[in-house]
Simulated scan of single mutants.
Amino acid sequence: MKTIKAFTMLEALISLILTGIIIALSYSLFTLVNKQMALFEKENTSIIEYNLFNSTLANDINNSNNFEYLDNELVLENYAKPQITYRFENNYITRGILDHKQDSFKLQVFNKQYKSITPKYNQLNMSLLLLNDTIQVNYFLTKQNSSVINQKLFHED
């Protein structure tokens, strides 16, 4: 009689148990990595949002020749481009160009202060909440000499 070479039931059972353990560990590792990637993506999105807001506002301030700050609203004027308006709310900031184009930045803003240093120089201070940390940002607004002279002498706004 010929004997057939095969695994015993005990060997097959042990290999199935080991395979199940490896699959369970792989699944838990995959779940952990997936959660960490989601957290990283959320943090990265917040940082990108802040960097986009900061560079856009700094660029708009540098290109403006006149500005006005009234009750949570910063209006920047430029000779060549349309007027740009920033509205600072508690949970977001909006940027509008003559109500044609609207951008929004999902940043929590608190402790806004607008200081008039001289008729030509002003300062905008804000505290932003980013990744459960407070960031203090300062923007220095400068009016062009022609705007200051026109306001003083001719009462133009």
Results as ranks from 00 to 15, higher is better:
I14V: 14
L18V: 13
T31E: 12
I149M: 05
I93R: 04
N78W: 01
N125F: 04
L76Y: 02
H100V: 11
N63R: 12
S147W: 00
S15T: 15
F67D: 01
Y114Q: 06
D99A: 11
L98I: 10
Y69Q: 01
N90Q: 10
F40D: 10
F7A: 13
N78Y: 01
Y50I: 03
N34A: 14
S146F: 02
N66D: 11
F67I: 00
F154Q: 00
I135R: 15
P119E: 06
V109P: 01
Q144W: 04
L129V: 11
I149S: 07
V137C: 07
K5C: 07
N91Q: 14
N138C: 09
A38G: 08
F110M: 10
M9I: 15
F67M: 02
S116C: 01
A38M: 07
S28V: 14
S26A: 15
K5M: 09
N111M: 02
L129K: 14
A80M: 09
Q102M: 14
K81W: 01
I61M: 09
N63W: 02
N44T: 09
T45E: 12
F140S: 05
N111C: 07
T8L: 08
A24V: 06
N65F: 00
N62K: 13
Y27E: 08
L16G: 05
L153D: 01
I149Q: 10
N145P: 03
E77Q: 05
V148S: 08
S28D: 10
K35I: 09
F105S: 10
L76V: 02
N138R: 15
N122G: 12
L141W: 02
T45F: 05
K120T: 10
N150H: 04
T31I: 06
Y27G: 06
N51K: 08
A24E: 08
S55K: 13
K81N: 06
S55E: 14
T85H: 03
Y139C: 09
S64Q: 02
I149K: 07
N122Y: 01
